[in-house]
């Protein structure tokens, strides 16, 4: 699944939130979306996923413009992609098991309950999720809700997955499990677009980094190229963003420049 953005912009109530964003996300690549808070990362992910319609520019999915697709076609496209929301966005009136099984039951009514439950159990094991699946989302901690949101996004085995801060609130073990799962998805040829401040995700998974600031695209390049960028603003943002992470021993810290510039040194 190839996503291409052509001069994408989003305006609401007279205010511009995203402006003139162009890039191409190749199949099987891992793109890390970075930027300070309020730079438009979540909105960009929602626009790319077709959840929020763009007000300007174009999004091409496998060469086909999203704006010319009918609602039904967009929903079919959404079937091929998963989305992890920053606030989990779990369905509050359903149990965790129902949250996970609903998308499968809706699209593949012929699948048996046993089949669906075995898919759920597999994801539960991979992420080391321990809470009772018969509980409602309101009974869970923030980290557990994020974990369920990740599992829900992967239930339909998507070709492309958008993840908005997937490691937020996760404990150490679940974080490690998440990294393993993401690596597995990457090696399986899945495309991942991840908005995150997580240095480990950046260093271990990212092929491309997209840097946003105040709704504008500052840089979209491979990790290798961005390590040597001359752009002071990009360097400053990466330094500022990565400052929030707690990782010492990752390659991404090279982006920060010499060791004396390293905020952790």
């Amino acid at each position: 699944m190839i996503i291409e953005l052509q001069n994408l912009s989003f305006t609401s109530g007279g205010e511009t939130f995203l402006q003139d964003i162009s890039c191409r996300i190749e199949e099987g690549s891992v793109v890390l979306v970075m930027g300070p808070g309020g730079s438009g990362k979540t909105l960009l992910l929602k626009l790319m996923a077709g959840i929020v319609p763009a007000t300007g520019g174009e999004i091409l999915v496998d060469g086909e413009p999203l704006s010319r697709m009918s609602d039904r076609q967009i929903l079919k496209t959404n079937l091929r992609q998963g989305f992890v929301f920053q606030d989990a966005a779990l369905w509050q009136n359903l149990s965790l098991r129902q949250n996970l099984s609903l998308p499968v039951q809706y699209h593949f009514p012929s699948r048996s309950v046993q089949e669906i439950n075995s898919s759920i159990d597999l994801l539960v094991r991979k992420l080391g999720f321990r809470a009772n699946l018969e509980l409602r989302p309101a009974h869970l901690s923030g980290g557990n809700r994020t974990t369920v949101s990740i599992m829900r996004a992967l239930m339909l085995d998507p070709e492309l997955c958008f993840m908005d801060e997937p490691s937020n609130g996760l404990d150490g073990a679940t974080h490690d499990n998440l990294l393993e799962l993401l690596k597995e998805l990457k090696s399986g040829g899945r495309t991942l677009v991840i908005a995150s401040h997580d240095g480990e995700i950046a260093s271990l998974l990212a092929d491309w980094i997209l840097v946003l600031d105040e709704g504008r695209l500052l840089a979209f390049d491979t990790v290798q190229n961005l390590k040597h960028t001359e752009d002071e603003r990009v360097r400053a943002i990466l330094r500022e963003v990565l400052d929030l992470s707690t990782t010492y021993d990752t390659d991404i810290l090279e982006i920060l420049g010499e060791s004396d510039e390293n905020p952790f040194a």
Binding site: D71, Q81, G82, D87, L102
Partner: peptide, 14 residues
């Protein structure tokens, strides 16, 4: 408000 509608859309559910 709790983005549950967006979650339906993202899962291909109208």
């Amino acid at each position: 408000v709790s983005h549950e509608i967006e979650a339906y859309v993202s899962n291909g559910i109208d």
